Amino acid sequence: MVQQRRREARGTAGEWGKLSSHGGLVMVLSLLLLYVASAGSAPSAAVVTSTRLILEPTEPASWQQLLHSGSVLQSRVRTQFPNNDVSLRWVVQDGRLVVTLPADVPPDWLGREAGERGEFELVDGGTQFLPLGRRVQSGPRPQPEMGIYEVVLSSNHIVSATATMQNGQPAVEFILTPEGDARLAAHTDRQRGYYLCILVDEEVVNCPILRTPLADRRGVMELTGTASLAQARRLAMLMLSGPLPVSLHAVGATTN
């Protein structure tokens, strides 16, 4: 009898142990599920999807000039970020250009680009390289006595431009309009041995090697000196976009 009661007691204790262990496991699983659910419902950090940049002209500008500035900046963005499907939105408000940038476009980069007109010109530099960094005047006809250099090509004559490497040097591959092709052919035939130099905003940035005649209006400008591929990319960008009608500076920015 005593042994039977002991066996019953042990059996009862064993059942309680099983129930206690099972209940503890259920409780642990319940707590874990509650933790996961609460973590999943926690608010996520805000993500910036766009920036609204307010640009003010540095000189009096018309509504049309500001609107065209938006188109020029859009062209530069698409050239600078060719692997991203990026586009700007812009509107003219109270004499300012308000540009909405996607997250892929750094506002400080666009602010710097807006601050420079970026006018590309290929000029006849004469029989010597023009010193880099030198500021010169340009015009439709050369006037050596006044220090004015003839413009051979401008961004109006460019159909496409792409930065590349040629013979270990940064270069720009380009396609000209029929008018640009005729101008370059006539000039190089008439002025053999003369140097062609690139101006950006009337400053000499390079005197490239340009082999002519061109085939199918296609050519390559090999940059000289210590020019970098980054400089070639920016040059290609300016050749395509054309100059801003007016330079701008950022006076405010908001993010969404």
Rank of each mutant, 00 (worst) to 15 (best):
H68L: 09
W63A: 03
L53A: 15
T58K: 09
Q64S: 14
L73S: 08
T49V: 11
W63K: 06
T51A: 03
A46W: 12
S50Y: 12
Q65C: 00
A61N: 05
A61I: 00
I54L: 04
Q74V: 04
T58V: 12
V47T: 15
W63S: 02
H68C: 02
G70I: 05
S69N: 14
S71M: 11
S69C: 08
T49H: 07
E56D: 12
Q74F: 02
V48W: 02
P60K: 13
S50I: 00
L67N: 12
Q74N: 02
T51S: 12
T58Y: 10
S69E: 13
A61K: 01
S71L: 14
L73E: 13
Q65A: 15
T49R: 15
A45G: 09
Q65K: 13
Q74A: 07
H68Q: 07
T51K: 13
W63Y: 02
R76E: 09
L55D: 06
S62Q: 07
S69H: 03
A61E: 03
R52Y: 02
H68E: 09
P57F: 03
P60E: 11
H68Y: 14
P60I: 05
S75I: 03
H68S: 14
L67V: 09
V47L: 08
H68V: 14
V47M: 02
S44G: 13
T58D: 06
S50C: 09
L53N: 15
T49E: 10
Q64R: 06
E59L: 02
S71Q: 06
G70V: 01
V72L: 04
A61G: 05
S75P: 05
Q65D: 11
S62A: 10
L55F: 00
S69M: 10
R76M: 04
L66D: 00
T51E: 08
Q74M: 12
G70Y: 00
L53G: 08
I54E: 06
S75T: 13
G70Q: 08
L66N: 05
G70E: 13
S44C: 11
Q64D: 11
V48N: 10
E59M: 09
S75K: 12
S62E: 10
A46V: 07
G70K: 01
E56C: 01
P60A: 14
T51P: 03
A45H: 03
P57H: 04
I54V: 12
